[in-house]
Amino acid sequence: MSMELQINLAQARKEKPAADKLGFGTIFTDHMFVMDYSVEQGWHNAQIMPYGPLLLEPSIMVFHYGQAVFEGMKAFRTKDERVVLFRPERYIRRMSYSIQKLCIPAFDEAFVVDAIKTLVDIERDWVYGAEGTALYIRPFIIATDPYLGVRPSNTYKFMVILSPVGAYYKEGFNPVKIYITDEFTRAAKQGLGDVKTPANYAASLYAGEQAKKMGFTQVLWLDPIEKKYIEEVGTMNVFFKIDGEVVTPALSGSILSGVTRDSVLQVLKSWGIAVSERAISVDEIFAAYDEGRLEEVFGTGTAAVISPVGLLRHGEREISINGGVTGELSARLFDAITGMQYGKCSDDFGWIVEV
């Protein structure tokens, strides 16, 4: 795909809120990226334009059959006032994997990364420098054929919107409470569990709301067959530190290949800490707790980076992890990854891309 990126700047700019008023995903910047697809033209009409409503027919296929994918990444303002992205190529590569399963046509990854860099550069004033803030980047593709019938669409719209954000969880970096459900399942192997499509998140809503009513932050899903093996938390991959070794469920076709998950694995290995990607059962976790071998539990994800887990509940049993306080390794990982993102420590992995 060879095309030019057209730029149409907004005539008026929005008022920017104070950093402590950001929240997560409720405020949007002045511009967005849009690109269209048709069978005849391929991907075309790439432009950066003022953020605003879309004019769409009510019959377009995404509304009825859910053919869509999305991604989520962040831009940061470093301590020396640079604006940087964290592993953008890796996120867009994962998006390319997702579109295969949703029968969406391939796009030029390098062009999209460059378009995102241009968009963030235009909106760099929206990248706050306060600790814990970032500019959340949401690329997504929707099927746009006005057609009521089950087949892949012939037309699509690729968009990128930006949102300045604070902490994802109200707890911030304090430990969260997780409910392990064996009543509901989210995804099965060889389905859509390993891609970022809205269907996965719709499937998690009911169980997530039930958990919140009981005072929990998120649901931890078990495998859908035996309801025995740990898979992932609703918005995070999950890690367990047992006897000094860090264990995380292996990618098995129903778990999202998290970019932060991969980053944590690489950082841990560089520190010489034993790491294992394997099947791990909920019974093993509770047995390790009973035997005094379960040292830490934490989740990883783009939104929260590292989220320590202070309490797990399964059935009628609750266990407090590390006395309900943030563990040493969780804190060290959080400091290492956010340190790279905010330019407070060296990037030894080549993950930081300057805008």
Rank of each mutant, 00 (worst) to 15 (best):
Val309Ser: 01
Met35Pro: 00
Met236Lys: 06
Asp262Lys: 15
Ala46Met: 07
Ile92Gln: 00
Ala202Gly: 14
Ser254Thr: 05
Phe86Ala: 05
Phe173Glu: 07
Gly191Glu: 06
Glu277Asp: 11
Leu312Gln: 03
Asp243Tyr: 03
Phe33Gln: 05
Val195Trp: 08
Met61Trp: 03
Ala288Met: 02
Asn237Val: 13
Phe158Glu: 04
Leu9Asn: 04
Ala331Met: 12
Gly193Phe: 11
Arg313Trp: 05
Glu295Pro: 03
Gly343Gln: 07
Thr217Ala: 14
Ile273Ser: 07
Arg87Lys: 13
Gln266Asn: 12
Leu56Ala: 10
Ala10Glu: 11
Leu148Met: 15
Met214Trp: 07
Ala207His: 00
Ser204Trp: 04
Asp121Gln: 14
Ile142Asp: 05
Ile306Arg: 05
Glu245Asn: 01
Asp283Arg: 06
Ile142Met: 07
Ala130Met: 05
Phe298Leu: 01
Phe107Ile: 04
Gly343Lys: 03
Phe184Gly: 02
Val150Lys: 09
Lys227Asn: 12
Asp145Lys: 03
Arg13Pro: 01
Gln210Lys: 14
Arg151Phe: 01
Thr181Tyr: 09
Lys21Asp: 11
Gly324Ser: 11
Ile280Glu: 03
Val150Asn: 07
Thr185Pro: 00
Trp221Ile: 00
Pro53Leu: 00
Leu222Ala: 10
Ser153Gly: 11
Lys228Gly: 00
Leu265Ile: 15
Ser330Leu: 08
Lys157Val: 12
Phe63Asp: 08
Asp114Gly: 04
Tyr342Ser: 05
Ile285Phe: 04
Asn154Thr: 15
Asp30Arg: 13
Lys228Leu: 03
Trp126Gln: 10
Gly234Leu: 06
Glu57Met: 06
Ile116Asp: 05
Ile48Asn: 07
Ser2Cys: 01
Trp221Glu: 00
Asp182Arg: 15
Ser257Asp: 14
Thr197Met: 07
Asp20His: 15
Glu295Val: 11
Val238Pro: 15
Gly129Tyr: 08
Met73Arg: 01
Gln6Phe: 10
Glu15Tyr: 11
Asp348Lys: 15
Pro249Cys: 08
Ser204Ile: 06
Asp194Gln: 14
Thr155Ala: 12
Val160Met: 07
Gly234Asp: 03
Thr133Asn: 10
Glu89Gly: 14
Val282Cys: 04
Arg93Val: 00
Thr338Phe: 07
Gly258Asp: 12
Thr326Val: 06
Ile161Ser: 06
Ser2His: 06
Pro164Asp: 08
Ala10Lys: 13
Met95Cys: 03
Pro152His: 07
Pro152Ile: 05
Leu56Gln: 04
